Amino acid sequence: MRRGPIVLVGHSYGGEVISQAAAGNANVKALVYINAIMPDTGESFSSLSAKFPAAPLTKALKQVPFRNGDGTTGTDVYVQPDKLRQVFAADLPTSQTNLLGATQRPIALSAFADKLTAAAWRNKPVYVLVGRQDQAINPALELFEAKRAQARKTVEINSSHVSLVSHPQSVKNLIVDAAEDYMWKK
């Protein structure tokens, strides 16, 4: 287990993951959300995002059923490769988005309905990066989340959903700001 201060960073669905994982962990000193979702306790991504117009990504998803080893079934979700650049990574070169489309990993459809049992952003400092051109998560939703969480810092950039790839310096700067804020306030 990691000892000492931790700054957790989550992108996209990873925002939900860090919100839940940091709950009750005193070593987590700040949360950084990069083009991320940030549901509250009892909310899911689906219920939260329903408050805003659907992002274009929703019309570019392909659902693929699967069977688990125990016989139960589920559904994986992929971005249709020919639409990935437009709705996910418009600020990357076509050669890179073609590779992303061919090598993407799915997300289980059920993940969109998972409800948080704790929301660490309620009692930890929050830093948010919003991609104004995000077509995967509505930027208005990301701004709503930042305001609701009383983010210490919200940075808006002209980026698609993959700002960590297309604008790594902006992402790095926000993470460093979160870490430095903690260090100065010790």
Rank of each mutant, 00 (worst) to 15 (best):
N158V: 08
H167G: 09
I18W: 01
S159W: 00
E43W: 02
V17G: 11
I175W: 03
A136G: 00
A118F: 09
R2Y: 12
A113M: 12
N25Q: 12
T103E: 01
S46I: 07
L99N: 03
F66M: 13
P81I: 02
L84N: 03
A36N: 04
P125G: 07
S12D: 00
L116W: 08
V130A: 09
I18C: 01
N173S: 14
K185R: 15
N123F: 14
N138K: 08
V128K: 14
K51G: 12
N173P: 05
M38A: 07
R85I: 00
K172T: 13
S46M: 04
G10I: 02
R152Y: 14
T154A: 11
A111F: 14
R105N: 14
S163I: 08
R122Q: 14
P53Q: 02
T41I: 11
F144T: 13
A50N: 13
G131F: 04
V128L: 09
S12I: 00
I157L: 13
A120E: 01
T72D: 07
V130S: 07
G4V: 00
E145W: 08
L92C: 01
R148F: 06
L143D: 15
G42N: 03
L143A: 10
R152V: 14
E145A: 15
F88A: 03
W184F: 15
Y127E: 12
Q86Y: 00
